[in-house]
């Protein structure tokens, strides 16, 4: 039961300090889940995030649910999912009841702009760490570069990109993996 509570608190903290989409939670997950609690490895987090991105629903919720399930089954999944959504529930309800004027204060806007700069630095740092555990050869470099350009410059749909990467991975690496297994 203690571990289930720990899951809730950890993901509550992650939800409270995630400013932006699912990508913004990655530096926090690396710190909390990989380094401090050792619930998953760097590569497992990347794999779970990849699944979260390619399945229906919100990436942040999918990733939290998966990590909770991996740790403590269905109860763990419920705890981590509740943890990640509870800060939003509280904060948004407070704001919707009439605190929305707070967001119009200049000081709050300046602080949020500062936070966005920190998010860029933190996520870039997370991307570099992920690069180290995900890009292993020149094919990986090409997949990375093509994906980045396709999404940023040409607005390719994410689902298409993900599907291509899966097919490519199977086509290129399947034989190698099978040889390793023998």
């Amino acid at each position: 039961m203690k571990e289930v509570w720990d899951l809730f608190i950890t993901f509550f903290r992650i939800g409270l300090f995630t400013f932006g989409g699912g990508y913004a939670m990655l530096p926090l997950i690396q710190k909390e889940v990989v380094e401090s609690k050792k619930w998953a490895t760097e590569q497992e987090v990347l794999d779970i995030y990849a699944i979260g991105q390619s399945t229906p629903g919100l990436i942040a919720v999918n990733t939290s649910t998966f990590l909770g399930y991996k740790r403590k089954g269905i109860l763990g999944a419920a705890a981590s999912t509740l943890g990640i959504v509870t800060p939003s529930l509280i904060i948004i309800m407070l704001i919707a009841t009439g605190l929305s004027y707070l967001l119009d204060y200049a000081i709050v806007k300046h602080m949020l702009a500062g936070i966005r700069v920190a998010v860029v630095a933190l996520v870039l740092n997370a991307v570099i760490r992920m690069w180290k555990s995900s890009v292993k050869d020149w094919i990986g470099i090409i997949i990375f570069a093509v994906t980045f350009i396709a999404v940023t410059l040409f607005n390719f749909s994410m689902i298409l990109v993900v599907a291509c990467a899966i097919v490519l991975g199977m086509a290129i690496y399947l034989r190698k993996v099978k040889e390793q297994n023998q």
Binding site: Q53, A126, M130, V151, V161, I166, V167, Y173
Partner: peptide
């Protein structure tokens, strides 16, 4: 192995 570099690029 194919998906990981692509997802890293999506985050980037």
């Amino acid at each position: 192995m194919g998906l990981r570099p692509a997802v890293t690029a999506l985050i980037a």
